[in-house]
Amino acid sequence: MENRPLISVEGLARRFGETGQPAVFEDIWFGVDKGEFCCLIGHSGCGKTTILNVLAGLDRPSGGAVIVDNREIDGPSLDRAVIFQGHALLPWMTVMGNIAFAVSSRWPNWDRARVRDHAMRFIELVGLAGAENKRPAQLSGGMKQRVGIARALSIQPKMLLMDEPFSALDALTRGMLQDEVLRICADTNQTVFMITHDVDEAILLADRIVLMTNGPGARIAEIVVNTMPKNERHRNDLHRHPQYYAIRNHLVEFLVNRSKAFDREVAEHGFDPRRPKLVKPGLMSMKLSAVNPPAEIVPLTTGRRQ
């Protein structure tokens, strides 16, 4: 096999219940490169959390494997920190307690003071200084989510797995946290795999966006390359970027129409599950407006409307 990406998902399938049940997803192939921010988009129930659980080592696939750092994963690891869909804080511990629990799991030999110092650094990083002695029940939704983020970052993992970390938040808090996560990930050159429902969030954060069709038997339809350079993505004027609407329309078109009728596309155009098509809808728009047509344009697959 050629040079593998840091995370390589190879032929993954998952069935629940007895054999013979249709798979939630099957023949899933994609990779996440080191330092890359990769988003997975798909409808509710298509199996995104299940994929993330397999990546985290919390669930075993029914078929295929996930290769991380050239080794097949066979269980959870401190190298892969998870930010859960619900924040999953331990309610009997304070903010400090929750993060210190993670830190002392990572470095069992550290003494108390060192664990606290380290935890405190990450509490400050997510802007929760002063709230370290509160219990999760005393925090707002956004604050809880931040504790979850701080806990994941505090163990300094090689990669971050995030399951819709911002979906339960109001727009303002979400925006703030997105900026924070983006900054932290850029500073530490984190490899990130994130699940989201939100198209704008994916465009803002992701370098590549993996599109998943509806289940059962969900597939990776294609992978959208976010051709908007990182330093040109700002939350407040994202919509002014010349590529923005082309990418956004492509994603929305997929979610609204193509995700449920992907079988027909496969029948018409063929489909190699091992090599999901890489598409760059952002560059198409550049070509249309005749600004520096780049050399390698991948044709925009046209969706059909019912």
């Binding site: 919390l58 959870p76 690891s77 892969r80 920190a81 998870v82 999953a88 799991s105």
Partner: peptide
């Protein structure tokens, strides 16, 4: 389950 999963991902 999610609390147990937290412990598992932290290799406790």
């Amino acid at each position: 389950k999610e609390w147990l999963n937290v412990a598992r991902t932290l290799e406790v």
